[in-house]
């Protein structure tokens, strides 16, 4: 072949399916869809090798709107189904899209196991702290006191912190972003895609109908800079409008605290430097909440290990080799049936 085929570069719009998007106008899911489509274009992801798998919920409608392969499954089970896809064909690039109810309530068990197994998937959890699709009941990430149709006088449950849950489950790639962070989000998604294992990305998403503004105290333009810290590997954990706030470890409480650089004799050298591979630091960063601490955004933890399906198929290859099978050679079924004690009846 002498003709070199230079396929046209795919644009973000090429990753849109022909289906009309049906989220409520103003829903944060639109922005996430846009960021994902941009990410796929940036990666020039081959559409035929990309699969979006989702559970049930507003967020889980996502695969219908992407022009790759897509599977809208059942409530909570997307991680398990995606594990099967990956086991069957490790060559596929598989994304899981899930909501806070889908992933942490009905599917909490599957999320735990897919993370600890380190199946090579990108898991995007759209956290709107509410059950959107079923019309606004409180969810496992809703803060205590959330008023909803099922908790008219306010919920009394302690919420789960999604990133802390992921780290506790043994996830080795954990990141957080916000639907509105259109610049940062594609970068985080690309990092997640590059990680060869289960990468967990919590995306805070505004449900304009049932939980509007629930993240406003740290995502609004006015508060954002002082209430978020964007963590970058190897760089000091500095934030704030004037970039003068930093995170320091208080050795007495073994907790993070906010300091103002240059105030009270605090030098920049006292501010912690982000180390993605440090699990203890990741756990502290993931747990941070306003008002005393900023919310951590970006890649909180990234400490690679071999993926589940890689190890599974490696074992299969080893067993095949031990049985003296060459590449592509199939073992004899008749021999299998005749192994062990046999006898002949004349």
């Amino acid at each position: 072949m002498t003709v070199v085929d230079t396929p046209e570069k795919l644009q973000a719009k090429d990753y849109a399916s022909d289906q009309e998007v049906r989220w409520c106008p103003g829903c944060g899911d639109y922005a996430i869809l846009k960021a994902v489509q941009r990410t796929l274009a940036d990666l020039q992801a081959p559409r035929e090798k990309t699969v979006f798998v989702s559970g049930i919920g507003c967020a889980a409608r996502f695969p219908y709107y992407v022009s790759t392969y897509g599977f809208h499954t059942i409530h909570g089970r997307a991680p398990a189904l995606a594990t099967g896809v990956k086991l069957a064909n490790p060559e596929l690039d598989v994304w899981v899209v899930t909501g806070d109810g889908d992933a942490l309530s009905i599917g909490g068990n599957h999320l735990l196991h897919v993370l600890r197994r380190n199946v090579n998937l990108q898991i995007l959890l759209f956290n709107n702290e509410i059950y959107g699709l079923t019309k606004g009941q409180y969810s496992p990430t809703s803060h205590a006191g959330t008023r909803s149709p099922s908790t008219p006088t306010g919920s009394v449950e302690a919420p789960v912190n999604a990133c802390a849950f992921a780290l506790g489950s043994g996830a080795r790639f954990v990141a957080r972003s916000v639907d509105t962070l259109q610049k940062q989000l594609p970068d985080v998604l690309k990092r997640a895609q590059a990680y060869e294992g289960a990468s967990f990305v919590e995306i805070l998403q505004n449900c304009i109908v049932y939980n509007d503004g629930v993240f406003g105290h740290f995502t609004d333009k006015a508060t954002q800079a002082d209430a978020q810290v964007h963590v970058v590997h190897g760089e000091p954990l500095i934030f704030g409008k004037n970039r003068d706030k930093g995170l320091r470890l208080n050795p007495k409480t073994i907790e993070l605290e906010v300091v103002t650089v240059g105030e009270g004799g605090v030098g920049e050298d006292e501010v912690l430097v982000h180390d993605e591979t440090n699990l203890r630091l990741a756990q502290m960063l993931a747990a941070m909440e306003p008002p005393h601490l900023p919310v951590a955004m970006g890649v909180i933890y990234n400490d690679p290990a071999p993926s589940y399906e890689t190890l599974v198929h490696q074992q299969r290859r080893e067993v095949r080799e031990k049985n003296g099978l060459k590449d592509g050679q199939l073992p004899d079924i008749n021999e299998l049936l005749r192994g062990g004690y046999t006898w002949t009846v004349e």
């Binding site: 699969v51 798998v53 599977f71 499954t73 059942i74 089970r77 398990a80 189904l81 995606a82 594990t83 099967g84 896809v85 990956k86 086991l87 069957a88 064909n89 596929l92 068990n109 599957h110 735990l112 196991h113 599974v312 198929h313 074992q315 299969r316 067993v319 095949r320 031990k322 049985n323 099978l325 199939l330 073992p331 299998l336």
Partner: peptide, 26 residues
């Protein structure tokens, strides 16, 4: 394992069935 089979001990029966469906899909 030398035959045409990959085995997966799932976290529960729901996951086992879902994973099997994912494998068929693929």
């Amino acid at each position: 394992k030398q035959f045409e089979v990959t085995t997966f001990q799932a976290e529960d029966e729901i996951a086992a069935c879902a994973a099997a469906i994912g494998a068929s899909y693929a």
